[in-house]
């Protein structure tokens, strides 16, 4: 049986600006993620982690190699994926609820249904918002929310169409430490409730170890997976685990791999 996300020997070359050389974003990249897994990808900056996300969602296509999602070759945008980024990018003219509903206005089959049954969809959005602790924020505009609240709303937007694959690109990097830990728990709880497959791209090793089943370390550009490390701690994990000795040791071990990858 092939993996849910199956990236096989992928090389991606960006066309350089006229005159300059092409950039090799990733080279011979292999990554398999099974259905329902939570994996984290860490690595030095500029190692092509974001490229990985774009490959998995069909926004970029490999120059060499193949990307398969749920058994089918990715040959265009895949509507079974949801994405959240470091920048929550909410639309300031829409209420938080309408921001969350944005994907529904685009993705089939909701796109046709949302016009006639707006109320049902609004209730759906409100329930999702409530599950991340934003029960009262639906009518507020995103700029009235704090950074952490905006990021929660952005997660809701990524999950509203019940994607089977969630892609997170450093979603908590711009938040303060306490808010970040809160959101780790939000993600953890959502993950257990909805059981989507998740790929988390991050700089934060503690975040990766706390949330993921497997952590992959990517090398400097052109990016390759150089280490794959199973995280043995039983799940669901309480936040206190991040202060335990074994957790610290594992984080430290990954850190030394990153140091090598940068060198």
């Amino acid at each position: 049986m092939s993996a849910f996300v199956d990236i096989k020997d992928v090389t991606l070359r960006y066309k350089g600006r006229s005159g300059s050389q092409d950039t090799l974003a990733v080279e011979h990249l292999n990554l398999e993620v099974n259905q329902g897994d939570f994996v984290a990808v860490v690595g030095p900056s500029g190692c092509g982690k974001s490229t990985l996300m774009k490959l998995a969602t069909g926004l970029h296509f490999p120059s060499v190699g193949s990307v398969r999602l749920d058994g089918a070759e990715v040959d265009g945008p895949v509507s079974i994926a949801g994405m959240a980024f470091q920048n929550p990018v909410m639309l300031p003219w829409r209420t938080t609820r309408d921001n969350v509903l944005l994907p529904m206005e685009v993705v089939e089959p909701h796109r046709r249904k949302i016009r006639t049954s707006r109320a049902t969809y609004q209730q759906m959005a409100d329930e999702l918002l409530a599950s991340v602790g934003l029960g009262d924020a639906g009518d507020q505009y995103p700029w009235q929310l704090s950074g952490g609240m905006q990021q929660r709303a952005s997660l809701c937007r990524a999950l509203i169409h019940d994607p089977r694959l969630l892609l997170l690109d450093e979603p908590f990097a711009a938040l303060d430490a306490f808010t970040r830990e809160e959101l780790w728990c939000v993600i953890r709880d959502l993950y257990y409730e909805k059981e989507f497959t998740t790929i988390l791209v991050t700089h934060d090793l503690r975040e990766a170890v706390f949330l993921a089943d497997t952590v992959y370390v990517m090398s400097a550009r052109p990016g390759q997976i150089i280490v794959s490390r199973e995280i043995p701690f039983p799940k669901p994990r309480p936040i206190e685990i991040t202060y335990e000795v074994e957790f610290g040791e594992l984080t430290h071990e990954l850190r030394s791999h990153i140091a090598q990858a940068r060198g």
């Binding site: 774009k54 969602t57 069909g58 926004l59 265009g76 945008p77 895949v78 509507s79 994926a81 994405m83 980024f85 920048n87 990018v89 639309l91 944005l102 994907p103 685009v106 993705v107 089939e108 937007r157 990524a158 169409h161």
Partner: peptide, 14 residues
């Protein structure tokens, strides 16, 4: 337009 916004929508087939 923020590139992330475009990515979010394009990835959904917009």
């Amino acid at each position: 337009i923020e590139p992330e916004m475009e990515d979010v929508l394009r990835a959904l087939g917009a």
